[in-house]
């Protein structure tokens, strides 16, 4: 049925949009202790995402909500199976959000140290955990015919899962450092460019490793082998990754950020296309895998949700794009504008 197929790819698209938008926030948060040498630099770094992170995080709520609405059974089994990992992500996101908002509210070094640590942990942990979780979904999750999970939190940290975590972390680190290069000036800018240049080759190696490991650890390539034309998406992801580096060399940091965004979308879709029609495959009883066909909502709900999405998502992208544009100029050094924002 077409509606289910459309929803399958919309589902992938919403996750990709979340990874693109909140991804650079995760990257910057993780880079905070490494690139921000002084308090002012740290503030400047956080100000580059200050007006945007909140709206970015709503993509997660939307992706989660759409999973609930379009594929209720997937939402139910996925979220309960991955209980502990999701709880960790949620707590990390709570700390990150509060930390970004509260760090400047009290002028005290220990207060700031506390919240800076939370920004770091609250950004790095979800970056890695989302990678671990999605890699495991690509691989298949050990749940049985009664839809009960037979693993633990630790069984997610297998070789392929960890590789996925590393891949996501590196994608977001490059994404974040490129955004910083675009938004900042002076020493911080130089350091961000250097970080992007150093992280990029590592990302390339891990990405290549992930593509190779996927051939052994998953059946993602089955769809590609059946329809070789789909390899275009993999090539696009790789091309975007290379373009990111070229734009960094050309000092076109915004273009580099867009290219990096495309590479993140490419990575997400590499998995999503490979999964089709599975949304949540079972590794122990593949016949019980949850698919776009056996786990979807009723046609009426899918139709209403499609209408809502087709109207509203472009509007959201428009006003969010407007907000991005509004805050696209170089971030002034935080010291020169002490309490302009609160």
């Amino acid at each position: 049925m077409e509606l289910q197929i459309i929803w399958f790819f919309l589902w992938g698209l919403l996750w990709a949009l979340f990874f693109i938008t909140d991804g650079f926030d995760f990257g910057i948060g993780t880079l905070l202790p490494f690139l921000g040498k002084t308090n002012n630099e740290k503030r400047t770094m956080l100000n580059t995402l200050g007006p945007l992170w909140d709206g970015n995080e709503v993509w997660l709520i939307t992706a989660g909500g759409v999973t609930f609405a379009a594929f209720p059974l997937v939402y139910a089994v996925m979220f309960s199976s991955l209980y502990s990992a999701l709880m960790l992500i949620l707590f990390a996101l709570i700390f990150r959000g509060v930390a970004i908002e509260f760090r400047n509210k009290v002028e005290h070094p220990e207060w700031r140290f506390l919240w800076d640590a939370m920004v770091f942990l609250g950004s790095a942990a979800p970056a890695i955990l989302f990678g671990v979780v999605f890699a495991n979904i690509f691989k298949g999750i050990p749940f049985d015919g009664d839809l009960i999970y037979r693993g633990t939190l630790f069984s997610l940290f297998n070789f392929y899962g960890v590789l996925g975590g590393l891949l996501f972390l590196l994608l977001f680190l490059v994404h974040g450092s490129v955004w910083l290069a675009f938004k900042t000036t002076g020493a911080l800018h130089e350091r961000s460019v250097k970080a992007a240049k150093r992280l990029w080759p590592v990302l390339l190696v891990v990405a290549a490793g992930f593509l190779i490991a996927s051939a052994y650890e998953t059946s993602l390539y089955d769809n590609y082998k059946a329809n070789p034309v789909l390899f275009v998406f993999v090539l696009a992801a790789v091309a975007a990754l290379i373009a990111t580096r070229l734009f960094i060399s050309k000092r076109s940091y915004f273009k580099a950020w867009v290219a990096s965004a495309v590479s993140i979308a490419g990575c997400t879709f590499f998995g999503v296309i490979g999964l089709f029609p599975n949304l949540f495959p079972s590794s122990v009883s593949p016949e019980h895998s949850l698919t776009a066909y056996n786990a979807s909502s009723s046609p009426l709900t899918l139709k209403i949700m499609l209408i809502v999405t087709i109207i509203l998502i472009p509007i959201v992208i428009c006003y969010q794009g407007w907000a991005y544009k509004l805050f696209s100029d170089k971030e002034p050094d935080a010291e020169t504008m002490p309490d302009a924002h609160y």
């Binding site: 200050g50 007006p51 945007l52 992170w53 909140d54 709206g55 995080e57 709503v58 709520i61 939307t62 909500g65 759409v66 999973t67 609930f68 609405a69 379009a70 594929f71 209720p72 059974l73 939402y75 139910a76 909502s297 009723s298 709900t301 209403i304 949700m305 809502v308 999405t309 509203l312 998502i313 959201v316 006003y319 969010q320 907000a323 805050f327």
Partner: peptide, 24 residues
């Protein structure tokens, strides 16, 4: 999910997005 999930999903797209983007 068929009913309840769609209300939550619409809340995010129709209202929460606007609120969170504009707060920044």
């Amino acid at each position: 999910g068929d009913i309840f999930g769609s209300l939550l999903a619409i809340e995010a797209t129709a209202a929460f997005f606007l609120e969170s983007t504009l707060i920044g």
